[in-house]
Nucleic acid binder design. Structure first.
Lengths: 255, 255
DNA sequence: CGATAGGTTGACTTCAATCAAACGACGTGG
DNA sequence: CCACGTCGTTTGATTGAAGTCAACCTATCG
C-alpha cells in the first residue's frame, strides 16, 4: 500500500507554496509518505516502483514550484525518482528556444541514462518530492541483483519506445493532433479519480514546449476541441467528453 | 578513429534493383558464421560490437535495397544488428505520413527494446547484411553475463539520449538547422575515409521523413548551404567545406 | 535511345508563429 | 473591502516558414 522509506537524510528545501492551481498540496512533513486523500501517488504499487528497493540509499528532497533540480549540463552523479508532484525536463537552445523532454510523475525516474552530464535540466512543475540516488548505487545494484537489472532494462526500453513515439508526434503530427495526443497521454498517466476529468499540473507554456508549439497554438487547439464538444476546458481542468473523438483527433491508432 | 574498411561490403546478394516496397530479401544461410571471409565492416572493433559475443546464436541475413525486414506491428521475437549497409526504421500514420525513427549503420541494433510488437518497421536503405538474434537470447545473456548486461545498459541509455536529442531537433529547430544537424550527425557516424566527404546512403525522401520535413525543403536547405559555401552537394555525395559554419547553422552547441 | 525515378527549382498556399490586446484569477497593499 | 498589478490565458490580426503543386532536370537502366 505504501513505501517505507526509513531513515533518509532529509535535505529539506523550503516548502513554501504560493497557493495555486493543481492542488498538489504540501507533502506531509518528512517521514510522511505519499499522503492519503488525494494523489494516490502511484508508488503504492511496488511493481511499478523501480527504485523502491534502493530507498535505504536514497535521500528524499523537496522542491517548490519551478525550482531547478538539476541544471542543463550538470555533472551526472545522481538520478532522481519522483515521489509526488510533477517534474519537467527541459533543454534550452542558446537563443532561448525551449524543449520539454518529458513530464515525470510519481514513480518516474530522471537522469539514470546520463553519462558525463545531464543533457536536460530538471525542474519542478508543482511542489515536488524526490528520491535522490547515486548513479553508482544503481549500477551496483544492477550488477548484483538480477531481478533489478531486468526491471531496469524493461524501464529503459520503455523510455526508448516512448521517446521514439514522440518523434512521430513532433515530426509528423499537426498542432491539433499533438494536442489531442497529449491529452490522451495525460488521461492515461494521471490516474485521476474520475476517468473523465484530469487536472493538468503544467502551464500552457510547458505544454507548448513539450509539443513543439507556441502557447497561443495550444490555446487555440484546446478551444477548438471544446467547440467541437470533445472536451471541456477551464484553466487546468480538462473534462473528456468524447474520448473516441479525441483519439481520432490525435491519430493514435497504434499506441 | 579511422576505420579501414572496404566501403562496400561484399554481399552475395545481387545488386540493387529498385525496390518494390515490402519485398523480402533472401534470408541467409542459416547458422552461417557471422563473417565468412571478408566484410568485417565497422564491426572489427569488439568494444563497439554489442552483440558480437552472441554471433554463435545469430543468423546472418541479406536484404536488397528497400526490402522490408520487419513490418510495423510485427510480433517482437527477434532483434537485428546491422553488419553492413544502412537500415531505417519507419512508422506510418494511417494517411501515409511517414516518420523515420533512425538510420542504423554497422553495429547498430534494431528492436531490442520492443515488448509485444515492433512499433516501427525496419527497411533496408542499401543492400544490407544483418545478424538476427532472438530477444530471449539477449535477455538470457544479460542475466548470466554481468559485463554484457553493463554494455547493454550503456547502449540502451545511449539510445534514450539520442532519441531525446532528436526531440529538440524536431520540436524546436528550423528546417535549415535540422538539415545542418543531420549532416553533422552523418559526418560523425559514417566514418568516411576522408573527413570532409560523406556519401549519404539514403534518399532525400528518407532524410525528409527523418527530419520531419518535405523532400523539397530538404533540397532547398542543401542548396542554400551550398550557396553559402558551407558544403558541396551532388546527389548523394556531400563535401563539408566549412564544418564550423555547419555546426553554427545546426545550433549544436551542446552535442 | 526512351522510360523512369530521384532530385532541383519556382509559384503559390497554408498552418502555425508572431504581434497585439484584453480578460480573469489571484495576491498585495492601501 | 476594494483598487491595483501581475501572471497566465484567451482571442484576433497579420506574417512568415515550410508545405503543396507543378515543371523540369539528370542519372541510370532496360
Amino acid at each position: 500500500m505504501f513505501v517505507i522509506y526509513p531513515n533518509v537524510a532529509v535535505d529539506k528545501m523550503s516548502v513554501p507554496l504560493n497557493g495555486v492551481p493543481g492542488r498538489f498540496g504540501v507533502p506531509g512533513h518528512l517521514g510522511a509518505p505519499a499522503h492519503s486523500g488525494i494523489s494516490p501517488s502511484a508508488l503504492e504499487n511496488l511493481d511499478e516502483d523501480l527504485l523502491g528497493s534502493l530507498a535505504m540509499v536514497a535521500t528524499t528532497l523537496h522542491f517548490e514550484r519551478d525550482a531547478e533540480i538539476i541544471a542543463q549540463g550538470a555533472r551526472a552523479e545522481y538520478c532522481f525518482q519522483v515521489i509526488s508532484g510533477c517534474m519537467r525536463t527541459v533543454r534550452l537552445l542558446e537563443d532561448g528556444r525551449r524543449q520539454v523532454g518529458e513530464f515525470l510523475l510519481s514513480g518516474d525516474v530522471f537522469g539514470w541514462d546520463a553519462v558525463g552530464e545531464h543533457e536536460f535540466a530538471a525542474e519542478a512543475v508543482t511542489p515536488l518530492t524526490l528520491r535522490r540516488i547515486r548513479l553508482s548505487s544503481i549500477e551496483d545494484r544492477a550488477d548484483e541483483d538480477r531481478g533489478f537489472a531486468q526491471r531496469l532494462r524493461r524501464y529503459t526500453a520503455d523510455q526508448v519506445r516512448i521517446a521514439r513515439a514522440r518523434l512521430v508526434l513532433l515530426g509528423r503530427k499537426t498542432a491539433a493532433e499533438r494536442i489531442a495526443s497529449f491529452l490522451l497521454e495525460m488521461v492515461d498517466r494521471l490516474n485521476s479519480p474520475s476517468e473523465a476529468v484530469i487536472e493538468l499540473p503544467m502551464s500552457r507554456a510547458d505544454m507548448a514546449d513539450y509539443l513543439g508549439l507556441t502557447i497561443e497554438t495550444v490555446c487555440r487547439g484546446l478551444t477548438e476541441l471544446r467547440r467541437q464538444g470533445t472536451i471541456g476546458v477551464e484553466r487546468t481542468r480538462v473534462v473528456i467528453r468524447d474520448s473516441r473523438a479525441l483519439a481520432l483527433a490525435g491519430s493514435d491508432c497504434l499506441q
